[in-house]
Write a protein that binds this DNA or RNA. Structure first.
Lengths: 196, 196
DNA sequence: CTGTCATTTGACAGTAGCTATCAGAATTTC
DNA sequence: GAAATTCTGATAGCTACTGTCAAATGACAG
């Protein structure tokens, strides 16, 4: 019923234009050397508007909307599976929906995030949120408390595993199958107790 | 031969005074509500001097000097031990040298770091450095490359394990034995493949 | 189409973290 | 005690970020 009116379409457009122009300018002149003012001007809005869309300069690169997707897919998994298997499945389902363009965008963003300390630092704050999300979901499924040491440890390790995999993949120029394969390798390594 | 001259003593003193006054003011008025100017004034120096001792406001809490210690102790371990066992031993040796006052200081700092997002973000940058350090040491010991996926994954997991343990411990009021015990529990959980 | 209402936007002013520079003070060295 | 080195404080300036208010814009009822 609720058509995306003109107002909402314009908002999404502005958001994307800010992200794109920012990435372009960061690539071109470097992250630190690019000011909010320049990004806003390139996107044809005022600096005030930039801050209405992104709380910080870092967020124009780091922000994503995967958390709700993770929750949805996780809860649709059979409750019989072990948490780690359920999380493995979550990734397969998510990756399956990615287009090549999505993947290239992710790679570009991830490379930038791992190259710029400030972005990496900000990324962590998001990761912490994801970790707490996982903790709540896994806790409920296993009938434990989200504050339980082993739950916290488990979820932190999972997220670390994901992070290592995606950073290693981003350095290559492989497609989404390679990303999935690297994730699997890391999770298997974790499941085996991280032997060397 | 090289006596710690007056100049060097004063420097160390100023550094400690800045850290102490900063922690006190942060506790009292909150991290964001405390300015560099206030810290500098409380420590009896100018804001310029603050920045000569700490590159950022966050560093006055986050900065520590454990990395070189870790390297020393790790390299003094028998090369026959598995890397994970060697790292376990590193912690025991390090903890053994901590006084009760050290431990209380660590707890206070850790609590603040986990309570203030900006500090936690900065902490990660330090953690990344520690991770790369471990990667180099473990790589050399196992005859692999520091860029090897499994090496990177292993070291990232170890550091995550440490981080979870120390944050869980900091929430309690246990002593250093409890800290060591929590670390052991986490590392054992990791070694077992993080089962739930 | 028009007037009204809600939302979005831009301009402006201000705070604070951080950098660079430079003269003067303190400490070390000879 | 003089010269060389290092440390400090003052100043000026840039930029990220916040708060406020009036103008512009799209939504909607009549």
């Amino acid at each position: 019923m609720n058509r995306p009116g003109l107002r909402e379409r314009k908002k999404i457009e502005t958001l994307h234009r800010l992200q794109e122009e920012a990435l372009r300018l960061f690539d071109e002149h470097g992250y630190d050397a690019t000011t909010i003012e320049q990004i806003a001007e390139a996107a044809g809005v005022s600096p005030s508007t930039f801050y209405r869309y992104f709380p910080t300069k870092e967020d124009v690169v780091v922000q994503d909307e995967y958390d709700p997707l993770i929750v949805n897919v996780f809860e649709s998994q059979s409750a019989d599976d072990a948490p780690l298997d359920a999380l493995r499945a979550v990734l397969s389902v998510l990756f399956a929906e990615f287009t090549d363009a999505d993947i290239e965008r992710v790679r570009r963003r991830v490379r930038m995030i791992f190259a710029v300390p400030a972005l990496r630092a900000r990324q962590v704050q998001q990761t912490v949120a994801t970790e707490e999300l996982l903790a709540r979901m896994v806790a409920e499924r296993t009938g434990r408390s989200p504050g339980d040491l082993e739950i916290r440890h488990f979820t932190a390790l999972i997220v670390t595993s994901w992070t290592v995999a995606i950073s290693a993949w981003a350095e290559t120029d492989g497609g989404k199958d390679d990303l999935a394969a690297t994730m699997d390798r890391c999770l298997a390594h974790l499941e085996a107790g991280a032997p060397l």
